[in-house]
Design a protein around this nucleic acid. Sequence first.
RNA 1: GUGGAUGUAGCUCAACUGGUUAGAGCAUCGGUUUGUGGAACCGAGGGUUGUGGGUUCAAAUCCCAUCUUCCACCCCA
Length: 438
Amino acid sequence: METKNINKNKDIKLSTSPYKGTSDSYPEEMFYRNYLFNIWEKVAKKFGYEEYDTPLVEEVALYKAKSGEELANKQLYTFLDKGGREIAIRPEMTPSLARIIAAKREELRLPLRLFNIGRFYRYERPQRGRTREFFQLNIDILGVGERTSEAEIIQFIMTVMQELKTPKETYELRISNRYLLDYLCEEILKVSEEKKSGITKAIDIFPKIKREEFKEYLKDLNLKKEQIKQVEDFVQWDLGNLQEIKEKSKGASELLDLFSLLETLGITNVKFCPYIVRGLDYYTGTVIEMFDIGGDKNPRALFGGGRYDNLLEIFGKEKLPAFGLGWGDITTLDYLRTYNLLPPYTPNTELFITLMDKEYIDESFKIASFLRERGINTEVQLEEMRLSKQLDYANKKSIPWVLIIGEEEKEKDKVLLKNMKTSEQLLLSVTEVPAKIG
RNA sequence: GUGGAUGUAGCUCAACUGGUUAGAGCAUCGGUUUGUGGAACCGAGGGUUGUGGGUUCAAAUCCCAUCUUCCACCCCA
């Protein structure tokens, strides 16, 4: 009976490839991912941000309330749990963050500086810079409505870029403000509320299409000739244009304040771009996106973010000013690879202990424990094997040091420490192995 | 969700356009070398040609379906 079962299992050929749009991370890939994550975490902590986390699943209603329609309806992984609840795997962090803040709205001391590095899922067609499973750094400051909070996050961004050793000519932080669109529609174009979303969308795709196509697009929105010209004019605005309307437009004055603050901080690689609008429905003021401008290999934003002062309202709570961003791992690693900015892969093991005779294994284990206590990452050869093979193994794994313990060494109560790079060998006692090796 | 391309050994690619037993480089393993790695040489293992149908005397090659990956749209990290 049992053999029958085994045969039956043999007939089922399971695929070894991961689920569509996801990928397995072998040690080398983990090394690169952790390189990025460690920098994110280190810099976030440097700025006084604290780590938090939320469940991977949420009720679908959370996303229906405020995320974009596309994200909530089409890109959401959903299922019914056994109690009949509609559950979603989180596609983004901000709604969850808003939820946990709203839950403790009354007792939290402000401002709150929070970050999280988490896994997210979106049901989409995979392509460059876009997969179904990805990680994101979410970093948010809550409780400060001033431009200072935005400047701080932008300072954080630039510090991370520095840590990643990114060349200045390869990136640009594009900044705009949602209130500016209100001003355009209400004060300049004087169009009805329904037309606003169409115009917003047109402005969003402006950098992607040709001038003529843009004109056609606006014509299709039933805009008058004069209005079309005004929109074409708007997407080319610079800070000078904002100066003229700063008394009348909240967006303009906020942007001017932010840019003057950034200037005093000596922050470069930032640009006012009127066509940055961002899709998610909850943004209210400043919006930002980071782009690779060194070539056309990475047309997708490395991250996007903005101000979302009203998000707590969906929980029936008092408003709370908030500003934050979601920084993607896929897009960023693509970018880092494009410019060869990732460090060479190096395994963790610093020292390898050979086994010349299987009788010596307890000696190996004891020495390994001793060295590990001293902080040296130590790997032990577990099977008797020709020495050349053991050295070959250490060499292929780029382990910098090898400790040889054989008959000769045992007699003298010493070990032979070999530097794999220089081939130098040193006969010494175990206690003499330097704690800081490498 | 729409459109376009793709799939041959672990990886990168061949196979004279439908014709014997699907090959090579790299990688892996073994040996030359039982206490010294990186080089060289010798050898070995590894494939239902993504999967399932169909056409044909004959299919990696042609047709259909399906899946994967990639690219664009959409959306977005």
